[in-house]
Amino acid sequence: MQKLGDFKLPHFFNYPPYFTLQPVRETREKQVQLWKDLILDYCRTQKIFIIGLEEEFPLFSNPVIERTLSHEAREAFFSALVSEGRAEWLDKGHRKCLILWHRIQDWAGIILNFVKDNGFEDSVMTVEEIRSGIESRGTELHGIDRTILMRALKILEQKGKLAIFKGTSADDEGVKFSV
């Protein structure tokens, strides 16, 4: 079985038609489905949040069978992810994509669980501490994309679970939990 680092690739990664956008509807639907799953799986295990469509990305080409995804195919697969709410375009030109292997509200739930597990119900933390602090190490929150984290925190703020305030430095913000 072929591997990308510690990620196990499925057999069909060596199937040449997998890299050509199929024109027949039924076949194409199945192909798009398989690509969506593979991209989300890979991003989750590798903690990848942003993919540039025009940049190098391990899944976009398979040197073993010498096949590369066309730009049209890349855009088709990511558009399918976007329409399902599992990704968002970061620019109008559809060149960069934010991958949401957890939806924003799921991320919010993960944050709440993290807070409860560590007894931070009434504590104050900086956003950076949540992303890279000792407490988050080993959890899914470790290394989370800042944009995703901020949007998850905003959802919780609207629900009254926390308050966001400006921190001492300009680029860091504080969070006051009140779960």
Binding site: F19, T20, V24
Partner: peptide
């Protein structure tokens, strides 16, 4: 659906 294509 019997076949699918490979353009390379």
């Amino acid at each position: 659906g019997l076949l699918c294509r490979d353009v390379s």
